[in-house]
Amino acid sequence: MASKWKFTTKDLAEKPEILMSGHRACAGCGPAIVYRQILKATRGPIIATNATGCMEVVSTIYPYTAWSIPFIHTAFENVAANAAGIETALKALKKKGQLKYDHVDVIAFAGDGGTYDIGIQALSGAAERGHDFLYVLYDNEAYMNTGIQRSGGTPHGAWTTTSPAGRVIPGKPEYKKPIADIMVAHGIPYVAAASPAHWRDLITKARKGLEVNGPAFLHVIAPCPRGWRYDTSKTIEITRLAVDTCVFPLWEAIDGEYALSAPSKVIALKPERKIPVKDYLKVQGRFRHLFTPEFEHVIDEIQQIIDRRWKRLLKKCDMA
């Protein structure tokens, strides 16, 4: 499946902003960049729904809304069901000849809390039933809205307020759940991993996700300057490092067939380009405690996990 859509940067800049300025995301917010980029991929009428979380809050503080398209938020754990409800209603309207459009896209946004953890049941159900919608996971790797608590998406060793850098336990003991692989295992037609640093790749993937018939799942790394403890100007730099270290490789799975995307394919072909994980960790305060004699072995552990996962991904992409 290849999207026929071609775009220039100017095309995107001339498209109206769907997420209006005046939203109250923090300075340097990764998710806000992700939203803006994804919403540049729309192809026509669209309805959005969002799980409870940072982006829902900052974009709709009553009586203000930053949404120039129809938008609904209801709760934390049900955004996939909400998208399914909209999609089903649109189907019913179309059947009755009451839909003014040939097609309306449905997009669901959720953070890692709303996806890995509390929302996985609704997501799994909606994926199994095959509703036609794009689900965007903006992964800032912790519950940032409530003040940085660990989630199933928080990486090993990271500090959060519920996985503190203690004297005995240095950050989160568990590993990041392979959520996108879980979604591929559902047999849905499109799953992809994207980074806002590689915005062309991200926007193309969002477009593919909208174009495909059936559920599409887009996993996007979306750093949080507050929670990851770095300067607000470094957001994009970090998402680039995540790709270059293979912490967050870019790939897509079309009908379950994995393929690396260009920025990660380059590394697969030229392994010397793979940067040590340490370089990614050291720019983030949430890993600072690992740079001590006592806990630096955790950095090695993290490197091993990343290498293992990268190797497995290469196998899936027939590039081992």
């Binding site: 009428p45 709709t60 503080i61 203000y64 809304t65 949404w67 129809p70 938008f71 938020h73 909209i86």
Partner: peptide
């Protein structure tokens, strides 16, 4: 929820 006349439901 109507793309022709967008409204926002369920704010904070």
């Amino acid at each position: 929820l109507d793309p022709e006349n967008p409204i926002t439901m369920g704010p904070l």
